Amino acid sequence: MCSKYGLEFQRSDLSLKVGVSLSVKDNQQPIHTLRQPKNDKTTGWYMWTGDYSEDEHFFKPLYTVHLDEWCPLIIPYLGLPAGTRVLIADDGKYVDIWTDTTLLES
């Protein structure tokens, strides 16, 4: 995906966590994702379906290795770098990827 979109590859360690809303497991769409800079505990990926919420409990921690059960559609995009947003709809038939530098701000 990175070469297809001209973006630098940034590995997502499967032993680190992502943030997901519970609605992601229900296979709702579209799937909204964004990647902030990774740290020693998370890959920086956050994903949700439906309406976004600022509630501190909106995102649940999930080890990246479990995304194959929760949201297999996102797996091909996990190497995209911090500062990337992805929107997936129609069971992956529609995908929009763009750079959002505001995600890189502390």
Results as ranks from 00 to 15, higher is better:
34 L>D: 02
25 K>H: 07
1 M>L: 02
6 G>A: 14
51 D>S: 12
78 L>P: 08
70 W>Y: 10
99 T>D: 10
14 L>S: 14
103 L>N: 01
87 L>Y: 15
105 E>I: 10
62 L>E: 05
46 Y>A: 11
59 F>G: 13
23 S>G: 14
69 E>D: 09
98 W>A: 03
100 D>A: 14
73 L>P: 02
68 D>T: 05
89 A>R: 15
100 D>F: 06
89 A>I: 04
15 S>W: 04
84 T>S: 15
32 H>C: 11
54 E>P: 01
69 E>R: 06
55 D>V: 01
49 T>E: 07
2 C>F: 05
95 V>K: 04
47 M>N: 13
28 Q>M: 06
11 R>C: 15
51 D>F: 08
77 Y>P: 05
94 Y>L: 06
24 V>R: 05
83 G>K: 00
47 M>G: 10
95 V>N: 06
81 P>S: 09
103 L>D: 10
72 P>D: 14
10 Q>V: 02
68 D>P: 01
25 K>S: 07
38 K>I: 03
34 L>P: 00
12 S>C: 08
23 S>H: 05
18 V>K: 09
63 Y>G: 09
27 N>A: 14
7 L>E: 12
38 K>F: 02
92 G>W: 00
34 L>A: 05
36 Q>R: 13
24 V>F: 09
41 K>W: 15
51 D>V: 13
7 L>M: 15
21 S>R: 05
104 L>M: 00
23 S>Q: 10
64 T>R: 14
49 T>R: 09
16 L>Y: 10
16 L>P: 15
34 L>S: 08
93 K>R: 05
92 G>N: 01
43 T>R: 13
78 L>Y: 00
28 Q>C: 08
51 D>G: 13
71 C>Y: 09
18 V>Q: 11
19 G>S: 13
9 F>I: 06
55 D>C: 08
21 S>C: 14
40 D>Q: 12
12 S>E: 07
9 F>G: 01
17 K>Q: 15
35 R>W: 13
9 F>C: 00
48 W>D: 05
100 D>H: 11
36 Q>H: 07
79 G>P: 10
38 K>W: 04
82 A>G: 07
82 A>C: 12
17 K>C: 13
3 S>T: 09
50 G>E: 12
59 F>V: 06
75 I>C: 04
58 F>P: 10
44 G>Q: 11
38 K>T: 02
78 L>A: 03
28 Q>A: 15
91 D>E: 10
51 D>M: 15
35 R>Y: 13
8 E>A: 02
74 I>H: 06
23 S>Y: 03
54 E>I: 03
35 R>P: 09
82 A>N: 14
32 H>W: 11
77 Y>A: 08
85 R>G: 12
